[in-house]
Simulated scan of single mutants.
Amino acid sequence: MILGLLMLFGYCFLMWLIFFKLKLAKFGIPQAVIGVFVGVHLLIIFLIGLRFMAPLATEARIVQYTVQLIPRLPEPTLVTAVLVQPNVAVKKGQPLFQFDRRPYEYKVRQLEAQLAKARQNVLVLQADTQIYAQKVIKLRADLAYAQYQQKLSADLAAKGAGPQEDAQKWTAQVAADEAAIKEAQAEAARANLNYTSNINGVNTSVAAVQAELDQARYYLDNTLMVAPEDGRVINLQVRPGMVAGDIRAGAIASFVVDADRYLLANYFQENLKYVKPGQPVEAAIDLYPGQIFRGKVLEVWPGSGAGQMLPSGTLPNFQYVPTDRPQGQFAVAIRLDDPDQARFPIGTQGRAAIYTNPESWFVPLRKIMLRAYSWFNWVYPFSG
């Protein structure tokens, strides 16, 4: 910068010495045009130095994370109470909205009764396994008796001491008892499968009702919506009597988070050649005319939507871009050093300068320009 100042001063001195002091040449229109042309090109030195040693973002704004408050309820539910005031700070876990609990309490009670019944049914299944086991034992005894009677009647019939019909009758009875035993064994196996159908040591029928009950309790807990983090609700439009739930599209309110806010500034891409995280920053915030806030570069966002292409069957069709259109810009996230971050609400605008080389002589010139902008905010815009 010193070299540029010396060159500019020397050039102005030579122009004055030649044309006005010594009058070695006449200062006319051609000399004026050439002089201005050369002088403007000397001023490019300052433009280049400022753009790369102290790039300035003319558009910077405070960004805060927002959480869309969407009721996690399975059906449209009445809002019974609004427990938060608009634009008032709340702490994490503080109640915000109360929804009608009654439908979900009824569901929980219903499932609690079904769970008790399911647990009793497990005992019934256990008793059934014992009943069918005893039934098999009884049928085997009947089969043994029928087989004895069959043999006895068959022997008597063979000797002519008994009717042939008795032997046939007991043969049929043996077949019936054998079939009854197989049926009872199948019933016993079915009862045992139902009784021993477990998951993690719990009967599946009980586990299924327990899962439904847990879900019902989850929805019951969600009838009270609480703050996800420290922050505030802006533009609160929720009122008691409003119906919210899965039929409604979108959130019922936006929750602005206090933590991790940052200043997002847009820079021309070529000006970011020497920008690195950790470099010092000064910002002029429009909300505070005449004040300068210091900070540091958090990160450079190396990309923009101009390079994004969505999947489609259409080939890229590049159009001519007029030279007077603004160049593509990249965003730089900046953390302001002020201990009271609440001074910078979401959407606050301003300008920010990054000092890529704080020792450069161009930095004081950028500081002067940034402070001039900040003080000019006292009178601009001219709103009267």
Rank of each mutant, 00 (worst) to 15 (best):
Q120P: 01
A333M: 03
Q210K: 11
G35M: 04
F382V: 15
E178M: 07
Y355T: 07
D260W: 09
V243S: 01
R366F: 04
C12H: 11
V84P: 00
Y132K: 14
L315T: 09
I29A: 14
V363P: 00
T58C: 05
G328V: 03
Y104F: 15
G347K: 09
I137G: 02
V124R: 15
E165G: 06
G290F: 05
T223D: 09
M15R: 10
D260S: 13
E178S: 14
L152M: 11
K182G: 01
Y373T: 06
A259G: 08
Y148W: 12
A154R: 11
Q319I: 04
S197W: 13
D177I: 00
M369K: 12
A118M: 14
R248E: 04
L78N: 04
G295H: 04
L17C: 06
E187R: 13
V379A: 15
D214Y: 07
N317Q: 10
V33R: 12
I252A: 01
V108K: 07
A25P: 04
I334P: 02
Y380G: 02
E282L: 10
W375Q: 14
Q147L: 06
L298T: 01
A54I: 11
R140V: 01
A208F: 06
A60C: 07
R294Y: 06
N198E: 12
I354P: 03
I34V: 14
G347C: 05
A342C: 03
V108D: 03
A179Y: 05
T129R: 15
R371Q: 12
V108T: 12
A32T: 14
M225P: 00
V206I: 13
S254K: 01
D324I: 06
V257K: 08
G4Y: 12
I368F: 14
I48L: 14
A216S: 10
R61I: 01
D260L: 05
A189E: 09
A180T: 02
W301H: 11
R101N: 09
F13D: 11
I62R: 03
I45T: 08
P339W: 11
S153P: 01
R343Y: 08
A211I: 04
D337F: 04
I247K: 13
Q31A: 11
P277G: 13
P345G: 08
I2H: 12
A184R: 02
R351M: 13
